[in-house]
Design a protein around this nucleic acid. Structure first.
Lengths: 171, 171
DNA sequence: GTGTATGCAAACAATTTGCACGGAC
DNA sequence: GTCCGTGCAAATTGTTTGCATACAC
């Protein structure tokens, strides 16, 4: 279940990129503002639970599933129920603050989405390790499909499944 | 839950393609041979249930989930249990005769894989319709990733989620 | 005060597991 | 005859729902 960020390869071959800006505190503040305005815009209540969940999610950079988040919050003495987690994540998905991933298993995985560039995943099936990458060519495919099928694509999910080529020879 | 095949656009812009060959009978015979040799190679028993399931899957061109397959086979008076379906599909995945898809929901979808070119999916979220497409540019991305990360990619899954742009305008 | 959001537990859905029996080898 | 694969039902896992209470508005 390990997860590491892709390397900063901006510019290299013009095809891979990954970057991160803004301090944790700024990030927390920013997403809180976004969520607040989302809740107001949609006439949802600004409950402490919702903000606690948002904060907890944005305090954690990797992928998580609901059970892990539940345990994490229980340990920190938050009193949240699984039901509220599912409900709130639904709102966070809708406000584009969280992204949902379905890797092979039947557990949904989530990750924070704001200031976390849209990226895709490589799952190393032997170790469960997840590599993130970002390749702009996917946007070209998207554009072609939109044009050919006359559709509007809202989002996508791209996962590659593979394994290390030979121990310690990769790189 | 509708599902339609992508159009045959081989050559157009050099980016989209879809084709199908071989009669149903030939197909059935071919996959049966492949499965037989797979079972022998891995010292698994060649039970009638396993071949019945393979036949049933290859008699159906679209996507299916386990429950649907179970119902389909029950109606045809096959006596199979869900457990056997899950077990056998596992073997069929391993022998590359079946492909597994996780669209948004928590139900896994499957489709036959042999002579069914590797393709990806567009899910129209409003209707649940699934469009298949095949874009060779995904292979370029794959090649880049293998090279950069020193990995070997076995397979991938690419899903776009979108909607029709405007009724009857998308050609 | 009103009514939405919450926590809890029960319900549900998809998949896995345990076990006794049957049939492939 | 051996023991793997089966059917069935029970167990497990992930997610949703129902309901009484709490608190945001």
């Amino acid at each position: 279940m390990a997860s590491r960020s892709g390397p900063n390869l901006t510019g290299e071959k013009g095809s891979l990129c990954y970057f991160w800006t803004m301090s944790e505190a700024e990030l927390q503040e920013k997403v809180q503002t976004i969520f607040t305005s989302y809740l107001e815009r949609n006439k949802h209540r600004k409950t402490p639970e919702r903000f606690a969940i948002l904060r907890e999610i944005y305090a954690f950079p990797g992928h998580f599933d609901v059970e892990t988040l539940f345990t994490m919050m229980k340990e920190k003495k938050y009193s949240v129920s699984r039901a509220t987690l599912y409900n709130t994540i639904e709102l966070l998905l809708d406000s584009n603050l969280v992204r949902k991933n379905q890797f092979g298993q039947n557990t949904a995985h989530f990750e924070r989405a704001f200031q976390n560039q849209q990226h895709d995943h490589i799952i190393l099936t032997e170790s469960g390790e997840v590599i993130e990458f970002c390749d702009p060519r996917i946007q070209n495919i998207k554009a072609t499909l939109e044009q050919i099928f006359g559709i509007e694509i809202m989002h996508h999910s791209l996962n590659f499944y593979g394994r290390r080529k030979s121990p310690e020879s990769g790189k």
